[in-house]
């Protein structure tokens, strides 16, 4: 083949462009530490990376939901612990006054104590978390329990659960219906408020014998009422346990996904640097050889 200076220069330009382009690509990888800097670097890989990113974002969100729900459960727990203790106190009062040996004055003061307990429990049942009532179902802006008559509590909420999204289409439901905690007579449970009223009535009964009988009758029911509260607490504890387990699982999942994404997306720096060195060498060699080939012509050797 007849070789002219123009063939040499155009080939040289083509090679040097190629080398420079490869060099630039590898430099980009080293600088950004990423193998995939744009979709065309690896279209399938990019699709997978985006899939992981979406998954990571939604998993992060689920963990955020779980974290908030756990705070809510802890708040419920503190609240119901208090309620349970108060019912216990009422039952202690009932046990103490179920014999008719107490004086009228003592029973009067016990009645005051029982009323105080009643009011405290109602206050607890009307607790707010984050500005929302926790025991009024979905009617979180409505006071769950209010006085209908003297020591007669009416429920104003509904039967809605507090729902937490913990995973794709998986929810954990927390009971937010105050009746299921304090007034579950409809389901064969105890209406704690009514029972406390019975106790108060018994203590205030001018006839000590009839009063004592009424007080005695509340003993077992109050016990059941306390159990009712504690049952809810153990349900919450179970949910809490489930949330914690899910949270742990998701933390694991996230680190696995991050690892997989890194393998897919991140550049192998050692490899990239070695490649960069190779490419630099190739680039320099191309330039050096071109410099020697392009320069001379026959003219350099005449005379």
């Amino acid at each position: 083949m007849r070789v002219t200076q123009n063939i040499i220069t155009s080939n040289f330009i083509s090679y040097i462009n190629q080398n420079a382009e490869n060099l630039l690509k590898t430099q980009q990888q080293v600088a950004s530490q990423k193998r995939i800097n744009k979709s065309s670097d690896d279209p399938i890989g990019m699709g997978q990376v985006l899939g992981y990113r979406t998954k990571l974002a939604v998993t992060g969100q689920y963990q955020k939901n779980i974290e908030q729900a756990m705070t809510r459960i802890e708040f419920n727990e503190v609240t119901l612990d208090l309620a349970s203790n108060l019912v216990d106190m009422a039952r202690g009062l009932a046990a103490e006054y179920s014999g008719s040996t107490q004086s009228a004055a003592a029973r009067q003061s016990a009645a005051l104590q029982a009323k105080d307990i009643y009011n405290q429990i109602m206050q607890i049942a009307n607790s707010k978390f984050n500005g929302n009532y926790i025991f009024s179902g979905h009617a979180t802006d409505t006071v769950p329990f209010s006085h209908v008559g003297d020591f007669n509590a009416g429920y104003n909420g509904d039967d809605g659960d507090f729902r937490i999204m913990v995973s794709d289409n998986v929810e954990v439901n927390l009971v937010a219906d105050g009746r299921k905690v304090f007034q579950d007579a409809a389901n064969g449970g105890v209406n704690i408020f009514d029972e406390l009223k019975n106790l108060i009535d018994g203590l205030e009964d001018p006839d000590p014998v009839a009063g004592s009988a009424q007080i005695e009758a509340t003993l077992d029911v109050l016990q059941d009422g306390r159990d009712q509260i504690n049952n809810r607490r153990s349900e919450y504890a179970l949910s809490l346990y489930r949330l914690q387990a899910t949270d742990e699982y998701m933390t694991n999942l996230r680190s696995k996904m991050e690892e997989a994404m890194a393998t897919l997306e991140q550049a192998d720096i050692t490899k990239a640097v070695v490649e960069l060195q190779n490419l630099e060498l190739a680039y320099e060699t191309t330039i050096a050889t071109a410099a020697r080939i392009i320069q001379p012509s026959l003219l350099d050797f005449l005379r």
């Binding site: 744009k38 979709s39 065309s40 279209p43 985006l50 979406t54």
Partner: peptide, 12 residues
Amino acid sequence: DSMVSDAGFAVQ
């Protein structure tokens, strides 16, 4: 995501 892959593949 598949649109992004599609655009990248076209360039490739």
